[in-house]
């Protein structure tokens, strides 16, 4: 486990993950961050406990079961456990397990696409209500200045970036809402790889990035 993660996920996101109401791309962000952060894992599991209390005390706790429900369940059990498509990937220095599931393997198997100014990205397959992608930012390079309509979360997987006064290293997440215009700059010592998720298309400032946006789906 990594130490010294200083930028965590928000309570509303963690509660949404526990409740099961987030878009898939946001769930991927939470699962990835929690894989590296026991503090947020404990917070998520506290919200799971709220779900347990809701289940225990729900107004419909005496919902009538269909006749023969128990026998049908025992028959299901006798049929054996359903086969799980659960691939255990080899440990990867950059991608935690849940990300490897979506990327189809470790960091070396990523098919990057250039989006300009040395920045590369790989879009991950999630449901359409939000998007997830891996970003590759050369050491010392800046992401194009952008604001956005919805929530954007960016988590460092390798290297680090600086955004105004804040420094983000592996495991740290920057949560930005529509008010924040920001320009993350990758740390000079190493190329930076991030997971970025957003529930709205990004708005880039300036002409060139806008054209890139049309072609690159960022």
């Amino acid at each position: 486990m990594e130490q010294k993660i200083t930028h965590h996920l928000t309570d509303e996101i963690l509660m949404g993950y526990a409740a099961g109401t987030l878009p898939e791309a946001f769930n991927l962000m939470v699962a990835t961050h929690v894989s590296l952060c026991d503090e947020c894992r404990a917070r998520v599991e506290s919200y799971d406990a709220v779900g347990g209390a809701v289940l225990e005390e729900a107004p419909d706790h005496d919902m009538a079961l269909a006749p023969g429900s128990f026998a049908a369940t025992m028959a299901l059990i006798a049929g054996g456990a359903p086969e799980e498509i659960c691939t255990q990937h080899p440990q990867d220095a950059v991608l935690p397990q849940p990300l490897q599931d979506y990327a189809g393997g470790g960091i070396d198997s990523i098919k990057w696409r250039a989006v300009g100014m040395g920045v590369k990205q790989a879009i991950l397959p999630t449901s359409k209500d939000a998007s997830a992608r891996l970003l590759y930012i050369p050491a010392g390079a800046a992401m194009p200045d952008h604001g956005h309509h919805g929530i954007e979360m960016t988590m460092v997987l390798q290297g680090a970036f600086q955004d105004d006064d804040d420094y983000f290293a592996r495991g740290d997440v920057e949560v930005a809402d529509s008010d924040l215009h920001h320009t993350p700059v990758a740390d000079i010592h190493e190329d930076c790889i991030c997971l970025a998720v957003t529930d709205a298309p990004l708005r880039f400032q300036g002409l060139l990035p806008k054209i890139a946006q049309r072609f690159a789906r960022i």
């Binding site: 526990a18 409740a19 099961g20 898939e24 769930n27 991927l28 939470v30 699962a31 990835t32 929690v34 894989s35 894992r41 998520v44 599991e45 799971d48 406990a49 779900g51 347990g52 209390a53 809701v54 289940l55 225990e56 935690p96 397990q97 849940p98 599931d101 979506y102 449901s127």
Partner: peptide
């Protein structure tokens, strides 16, 4: 109760929302 809630929630996402649920 909490553990069963998490199983029920995952089933809900799978069946009602037809999405995969990434787990840590």
């Amino acid at each position: 109760a909490t553990w069963i809630f998490t199983i029920a929630r995952n089933r809900k996402i799978d069946v009602l929302r037809k999405q995969r649920r990434p787990e840590p």
